[in-house]
Amino acid sequence: MEYQNPKIPEGINVSQEHPLKDFFIMLLGAGLIIAGLIFTLTLLAGSLVRYVPFELEQQLAASLEQELVETETVKPGRHQQYLQNLADRLVIAQQLPEAMKITVHYMDGDEVNAFATLGGHIFVYRGLLEKMPNENALAMVLAHEIAHIKHRDPLVATGRGLTVGLALMSLAGIADSALAQQVISQVSLLTTLGFSREMERAADNEALLTLKQHYGHTLAADTVFQIFNDLEDGQGLPAFLSTHPQSTDRIEVIDHFQHRHGSHQGTLTPLPSWFNEP
């Protein structure tokens, strides 16, 4: 009997494929599957959510409203009165369904921002109002936010957030390790951002139609985006990483709209003289 240990050739117990090649193929596959899943889910959630009656949305928002409205920054007063008034006129021009009630809140903050939330609440910051040269520019902002409420965007966004959150949680349970948290959340973020930009574009369009209806022209509609553009100063995120379309693109869309509808003739409505006083 003979005893020996011959040399065993290499490579029997390991795959010869390059790890990077394998990795990128899988990454692409996983990305596509997750994007597809999130896309279908959000689409489904978005279309179902529109059937939720507005009263229910208001009830949902009731607790949220308490929280937001009772913060110190919200200031009732003549600014708030004026904004509410303007909003009410725009609501008529935009032909909102009877049930939808818009409430505008004036926030005493420096941010150049305005947003719409559940239950028909619109919040406008002092920082934004201070930059408004005339009523038309302000009307564009309000009309845009009212359009969001008309399209049920706050509710849709919440619904999507919930669905996607649930889907991600179940997916993360399957694929262990940091992978799930990373790849899945990045892909879903990009997908939902795409949806968000789509909403903004639709709201912009609706707002332009409203202005045309109310004032007969859409002059100064692009003022707010010019302001945003100046603020960003080329420092903005690339379009696909952002919740809103780029300001320059939005200005272009407005220009295009004005040419198509011939709505670049008219007179601007000034803001009341006390407007920029505290």
Binding site: M1, Y3, Q4, N5, P6, I8, I12, N13, I174, A175
Partner: peptide, 21 residues
């Protein structure tokens, strides 16, 4: 047995797709 050639080993790591999980 006429010749002992020492130890040989085989190893592998496998997983099932997420659906099966």
């Amino acid at each position: 047995i006429v010749q002992h050639l020492g130890m040989v080993q085989g190893n592998t790591v496998r997983s099932k797709h997420a659906g099966k999980d």
